[in-house]
Simulated assay, not measured.
Amino acid sequence: MRLYGVTGWKNAGKTGLMERLVSEISARGLRVSTVKHAHHDTDIDQPGRDSHRHREAGAREVMLATPHRWALMHELRGADEPPLAELLQRLSPVDLVLVEGYKGAPHPKIEAHRQETGKPLLATRNDTIRAVAADSAVETTLPCFDLDDTAAIADFILREVGA
């Protein structure tokens, strides 16, 4: 499975870039899936819903199925968060998996960078970052792209993964 990441500091434009890349690469005829890592507690379920009640009752996994989508929620119940490699095994085969977050994981990444965050480039300390997509000039020896030049960023990623 081909894998490429988008990383960066909070409010650096990661999610917007991910959204545009999924749209761009899908429009080119490739099948794309995504993995989004969150450091905070996030719940896609709603209190009071039947599926939420099942989880609250102690179910380890709850699958919610509708005519339009299905979702599998897995409760860790005190267990460690699984590593990215283990989570990727649960995905159906696709042409490319784009990963948002997981700064320290070993897969190749592009860093989204916005000057307004006031944060330094992660690329100076992370050798898994292969390029930077920024809203202003940055000092790096890595390939640089305008944060909004989705087509050029997609071209770069697809060359990197051999697609």
Rank of each mutant, 00 (worst) to 15 (best):
R55H: 08
V94D: 02
L87N: 13
V62L: 07
D80E: 14
R77P: 02
P108A: 15
D95P: 00
D50T: 09
K103C: 02
R60E: 14
E61Y: 11
L96E: 00
I44G: 15
H37V: 03
V35P: 03
T34P: 01
R69F: 11
H54F: 15
K109Q: 02
D41H: 11
P67H: 01
V22F: 00
A38F: 05
H40L: 09
S23K: 13
V22D: 03
L76D: 09
K103Y: 06
M63N: 11
A85E: 14
T34G: 04
A85R: 11
H39Y: 02
R53S: 08
V22K: 02
D50R: 06
V32S: 04
K36D: 07
Y102C: 07
A85H: 09
A38V: 10
L84T: 11
V62G: 07
D43E: 12
D50V: 06
R69T: 10
S26C: 09
S51V: 12
K36L: 11
R53W: 05
M73H: 12
Y102T: 04
G101H: 08
H37Y: 03
Q46A: 12
P82Y: 12
E111F: 00
G78Y: 05
L30T: 07
I25L: 04
L98A: 01
T34D: 05
G48Q: 03
E86Y: 00
G104T: 10
D43L: 05
L76Q: 13
I110V: 15
G58T: 08
A57P: 05
L30M: 15
S26A: 14
E100Q: 11
H107T: 00
H107S: 05
L88K: 07
V94K: 06
W70Q: 11
D43M: 08
L76A: 10
I44P: 10
R69S: 12
Q46N: 12
L30N: 07
M73L: 15
A85S: 14
E81I: 13
P82D: 12
G78V: 08
L96S: 00
G58K: 07
V62R: 04
G29L: 03
E81Q: 14
R69L: 04
E81F: 13
S92R: 14
T42K: 08
L98Y: 00
K36V: 09
G101D: 12
L84D: 09
R55F: 03
L30W: 13
A65P: 01
E75P: 09
P108Q: 11
L84K: 11
A85C: 05
A27V: 02
G29Q: 11
T42Y: 13
G101W: 01
V35A: 06
L87V: 15
A38R: 04
M73Y: 13
T42A: 10
E111P: 01
A65S: 15
T66Q: 00
P83L: 13
D80R: 13
G104Q: 10
R28C: 06
A38C: 09
I44A: 13
